[in-house]
Simulated assay, not measured.
Amino acid sequence: MLHCSTPKGRAGLSDPATQTLGHETAFYWYVTAMMVMAYFVRLRLPRQAKYLRHEH
């Protein structure tokens, strides 16, 4: 079994929960930004594609 010990003064900095806190916030904003961008792209799309119109 692998055992890693940390110095007493740096125990809070090596805590996995502390390390991932910034990543969770960044991921939240990334997902939010992608959803907003997808919404605006959707607004620019035509209601019906031109290639679906068959005029015979």
Rank of each mutant, 00 (worst) to 15 (best):
S5I: 15
Q19G: 01
F40M: 08
M37A: 11
L13E: 15
G12C: 03
V36W: 02
L43R: 14
R47L: 04
A17M: 14
F27L: 06
Y51F: 12
W29T: 07
R44D: 11
G22A: 04
F40Q: 10
P46A: 02
A11W: 06
T6H: 10
R44I: 13
V31F: 10
R42Y: 11
A11M: 05
P7F: 15
R42S: 11
Q48A: 06
V41C: 15
K8P: 07
H56P: 04
A38K: 02
F40I: 12
H3N: 06
T25W: 02
A38N: 06
H23P: 02
R42E: 08
Q48L: 04
R42I: 13
Q19W: 03
L21F: 11
R53H: 11
T25L: 05
M34T: 01
V31P: 01
Y28G: 05
D15E: 12
Q48D: 10
R42H: 14
R10L: 09
S5P: 03
S5Q: 12
T6E: 14
A11C: 06
F40L: 10
R44Q: 10
L52T: 01
V36N: 00
L13A: 15
M37R: 06
M1C: 13
P46V: 00
Y39G: 05
V36E: 07
G12W: 05
Y51S: 09
S5K: 12
Y28N: 03
C4F: 10
H54L: 14
W29G: 06
Y30S: 13
M37Q: 11
Y51V: 00
T6C: 12
Y51D: 10
R42W: 07
Q48K: 03
T20S: 13
A49D: 09
V31L: 14
K50F: 14
M35P: 01
P46M: 01
H23N: 09
G12S: 11
G12I: 12
A11D: 05
F27V: 00
R44E: 10
S5D: 05
R10W: 08
G22Q: 02
M1R: 09
V41L: 15
A26V: 11
S14N: 14
P16T: 00
P7A: 09
G22M: 06
L45Y: 02
R10A: 04
R47Q: 09
T18L: 15
L45P: 00
Q19C: 01
A26Y: 07
K8I: 11
H3Y: 12
H23Q: 01
T18H: 13
L52P: 00
Q19P: 00
S14I: 04
F27G: 00
Y28K: 09
H3V: 14
R10S: 08
P46T: 00
